[in-house]
Each structure stands twice: as C-alpha cells, then as structure tokens.
Design a protein around this nucleic acid. Structure first.
Lengths: 329, 329
DNA sequence: GTGAAAGCGCTAACAT
DNA sequence: ATGTTAGCGCTTTCAC
C-alpha cells in the first residue's frame, strides 16, 4: 500500500504538494497537479484516513444510538440520517443498546476516545446523567425521545397532542371505553402520550378506567398481544384501543383476531408511527404518522452543525393522524 | 483533552509506561501502575483511538453492506454480527447501498482508505468484479448472497433445496397450479430458488406454466401486491403461490384479501425468511426459516478470522420449512 | 507555487 | 521494570 511519501517521490514533488492535490487546493499549478495525479494513478494510491483523521483530530463518524434495530421506526429515521451524513462526508456508526447500560457505555466510549465526532441518541432508556456530562465536551443531539432542560438539543414531535388526537378520534367514533397500551412511563414520550390520552378522556366527559391502562416493557408484537389479552379478559372489555407503537397495535390486532373478534366492529385499534407494516395488516391500521425520515435528516443536520461549533435550536415536527380500516371499518 | 504525554508527566513516568498500563501489560510494577492510574483518573484521560489506530494501522471497524435497512431479514443478521463484533472489540459501520453503484463505491472507499478493516457484503446487487479486486487486498466475506468460484468466502443456506421443499409442500397439499414470485434472476439466490421451484414442479409431474412465474425488481410489500395482482388477473389462477421473501408474501396476502379471496382456501401462500412479522399476519405465514442471527455471528467470526490473516471455509447453514396457516388453514 | 519540517497521539523495538 | 525514540500517514505553517 502506497503512502503519500511514495507518491511525492514518484511525482518528484514534496508531500505537501501531494496533500494539496489530494485536498483540491487551487494553489497547485496544473502541470504539477498532473504529475501528482499520474503518480497517484500509477501507484494505485489511496490516502489513509487514519493519518488524516489523527492529523485533523476527527473521525468523521456519527454515532447513532437506538434501542433495537428491528423496530422499523428507527430504520426509517436512520435512512434520513444516512442521507445527510453521506452528503456531508460523514459515516454512520449504528449502535444498538438493547437498552443495556453496559452496551451504552461501550458506545459512549467511542466518542470519548474520538472514534466518533458526535451522537444522535434515539434511545429512550439512555442514561441522561451520563449523556448530560458527555454533552459538555461532545456534540450530542436527541432524536424523538429527549431530556427537557438538559441543554441537549433535540428534534421530536408533540407527543401529547398526537396522542390526544388519536384518542379523540376514537371517542368521536362513539367509543366510550377506550384503553391505552403504553410503554413504561419512565420514558418521557410515554408520559406525554399518557397525558394526551387522559386529556382526551377528560375533555369528553368520559370516565378514566385504570384497568384500561396497560404498560409494556418493550415495543414488540408479543407485548402487544399480551397486553391485548389482558384487556380482553376484562369483565368490561374496552371497545377501542390506542397503542403507542404500531408494533404493539399489530400484536393487539393479532390477539383480537385469534379470539375470533373483529376489528373494528368489536374493537377499534389505533397505533403510532405509521411504519410500512401498518398498511399491510388486515384491516389496515389507523395510526399517527411521524415524519421519520425528516426527523433523521434534521437530527443529522443539527449534529453536524453542532460538531462545527454552531448553536442549534430544538425542532418540533408535525405529525398526522392517518385514519384507516382498523377504526373506520 | 489530556493526552498520553500529560498523563506520563503527571505520573512521573514515560509515555511508554502509560501505554503499557493502558494495554494491560504485566511488565509494570504495581506501584507504577497505581501512579499511572491515579494520573489517568485525575486528568480524566481517555486514550485517543485516532492515534492508536494510526499506529496499529487498523480501524477496528467492520463494514456491513446491505441493500435496504428496512428489510427485517437484514436487521436480524446485523444483530448477530453486532454480537460478535462487540465481544471482539470491533464496531459496525452499517452501509445501505440502495443497490446504487455510486453509494456502494463510497462505501468501498472506506476500506480502501483504511476506515474499515473488512467487509461483510449482504448486497445481492454488489458489483462482484469490484468486490473480487478488493478481496485481493482486503478481508471480505459474503453473507447470504455470494459469488461462486470468486475465492471470496461466504456463509449462506441451500437456496435451491429450501425453495424445492417449500414448493413441494404446496404440491403435496394437492396444488397443481403453483406460482412463484421471484426477484430478478440476475441474483444468484433468485436463480437458485427458481431451480428449486422448477425441480419440484418437474419431479411431481406438473406442467411448468410460464405465466405463473413473476419477477419483481425489489423485495417490498408493493412488489408483492403488484405481482399478485398479475397472477389474479390470469384466466387460470394459480391455487398456490411461493414467494422468495416474506415481504413479497405479505404484500401478496394483502392483495388476495383485498380482492375478497381467502388464504389458504382460495389461494395458499408461502414466503421466505421467517421475519417476525410473518407470524402476525392473518392468516399466519408459512415460510422458510433462515438462521439469520446465526448467519450474522458466523459471518462476523469469518471476517475477523480473515482480518487476522487466517484461512476461512465457506459455511452452508440449515434452513427449515415452517408450516403455518397460510398453507394449512 | 512549492518545499521543509513540525506534530497530531499512540505503540513497540531497543536500550538500560 | 522502565525510558528513549522512531515512526504510523497525514496536514499545515512558515519560508522561499
């Protein structure tokens, strides 16, 4: 593997000049540039990023922290991040925490040890204390889940209102027994969506029934099934269910189906995220659309700005209630 | 940010000694080690991987090439890769090619420029010529899709046999009109699965009907729907459909449903991959289970061995036909 | 317009 | 057991 020295030698110039050509500086004469390019070609030279990165004291890597790669919600956001990253000459270090603090710490080390120039955290279970400390010395953005008043910039949606609108939709359809399948309320988004749920219930003069509130530890199909099983075993079954994730909703749908009940006739279901799957279920799923791709691009832009030392503002993106068969029939 | 010099100075030792402590060498006396650790603590020192990597001439990054991050098949494989990578102190550079040659080339540059120590390619659309050239100087493994006789080690399953078994299952159920929704046969796996399909048809004395063979450009829900629409518009509808991906199968299921037909009574459907969602459809999907996680761990182990300069053998993993409602009712 | 040289932070060979 | 030093491959300041 050739290095810059050998190129310089072959071209009969100094390494400085080779470097200038490499970096597209205009202070090199056309003749010299040509000689250098010839030498590069001949030696099949590729500049080593290891040397460049050390010299520039940067890695040009963006660390993305997600709880689980299997949730399509994150896949879409990542697509957005990737788009911006590529066009800004950054690369993505995708890190799945499985909500494990040890794993998380391994990944935090990547930025501590300069292997990553910044972090986009999408993990609701992230250790906010560590994150805050880290944010003092490193560029960090939170995406979707965030920490208010932490000084860490974030991009997200208005979870309370999104949840409110979904539940209101169910209520306006005539449902009086509306359940919610939420995730653990140690997460901010879960608390916000719960608030939206409660506000909708209250504002419409309905009764808040504690047995209609189910919490799950994770956002998966199985958790949705289990939660729905609980709800279906109730003496007074709900007639509608709002879940904070499409994955939960799809699991719930499945469980309702297995018990021989019909959606939406027996029970209406609404989810959250508008993942691709949500349009493939039978019936198709009413859900709150999050602008996932856009969220990704914005998070990436914010992070890159932050890495450059610029100030960045928090961003709240618009959501949209997408009404489909699982509530309308 | 402290560097190794400052630590050495504060501890009253040389940088070599600090380096030894950092790398856990036992040739350092307990007393000295303690002093160094104190200094590290005090300065909040974190060794820079930029320096270390340049010196060691490695990046400890593994580049993973996938066509689309949104296909859950890849997510599972990645989970496996990640598991091994972490425990071997490597990190993952996840790269989505979107089957675009330009993007692919950007990613190849990462290994050319030493930003990645090796590649696991899972992209069927990968440029095999470039890959072969690259493989001469770099560690490369192919996972799932591979290039026979290229000298590039791979881990995969027996696609022909898997496909054969799935189609045979349909035939043994009494179906005589069995269609296949395949992807473009420029991909090896597509050709292999087609061969399995044809062998099953032939061996059972059925007629090969060209109009029952549909090709799609991508593996997505929409492509499955479109393909199924074509099949349903046929004068002589097939009574069973085998698709080379669960995503296609789910799209097909959807289309059959929308046209008011029933699975499996009117048409039986079998997919491929056993992604999580395949158990959430209504009816649940008969599918060929690929050991995705294991495939990931093995690919990662092979790559790391290869990086170390060891020879590695190709691996063919077992698959399994999982029979569920979409064929059995 | 080009070159010489310093130095980014680390490891390892060699010396003691 | 510990220190000295060269050098990994690059960029950039400062001369000329």
């Amino acid at each position: 593997m050739a290095n810059i020295q050998q190129v310089a030698k072959l071209a009969g110039v100094s390494v400085a000049t080779v470097s200038r050509v490499l970096n597209g500086q205009r202070t090199v004469s056309a003749k010299t540039r040509f000689k250098v390019e010839q030498a590069i070609e001949k030696l099949n030279y590729e500049p080593s990023m290891l040397g460049r990165n050390l010299r520039n004291s940067e890695s040009r890597m963006l660390l993305i922290l997600i709880p689980a790669i299997t949730n399509p919600f994150y896949s879409e956001v990542i697509k957005g991040i990737e788009h911006i990253a590529i066009s800004s000459n950054y690369n993505i270090l995708l890190c799945e925490t499985d909500s494990s603090p040890e794993r998380e710490n391994i990944y935090f080390d990547l930025v501590r040890t300069k292997m990553a120039d910044g972090i986009i955290s999408m993990d609701p279970a992230v250790n906010t204390e560590t994150l805050k400390v880290l944010a003092k010395k490193h560029a960090i953005i939170q995406c979707s889940e965030y920490t208010p008043d932490s000084g860490i910039p974030y991009v997200t949606i208005d979870n309370e209102r999104a949840s409110y609108q979904a539940v209101k939709h169910l209520i306006q359809l005539g449902h009086k027994e509306v359940a919610i399948i939420n995730s653990d309320e140690k997460y901010l988004y879960a608390r916000q969506r719960m608030m939206g749920y409660k506000r909708a219930i209250m504002e419409h003069g309905l009764e808040l029934n504690e047995s209609y509130i189910i919490h799950t530890q994770q956002l998966g199909f199985e958790q949705g099934q289990q939660a729905m099983r609980k709800l279906l075993s109730l003496k007074e079954r709900p007639t509608a269910v709002f879940t904070v994730s499409d994955l939960l909703a799809i699991g719930a749908l499945k469980e309702i189906n297995s018990q021989g009940l019909l959606v939406p006739n027996d029970i209406a279901v609404a989810g959250f995220d508008k993942i691709d799957f949500s349009n493939m279920t039978n019936p198709t799923l009413t859900t709150v659309a999050q602008p996932m791709y856009k969220m990704g691009t914005i998070a990436a832009e914010m992070l890159i700005a932050k890495i450059k030392g610029q100030e960045v503002e928090n961003v709240i993106l618009d959501h949209e209630l997408v009404i489909r068969q699982s509530t309308l029939g």
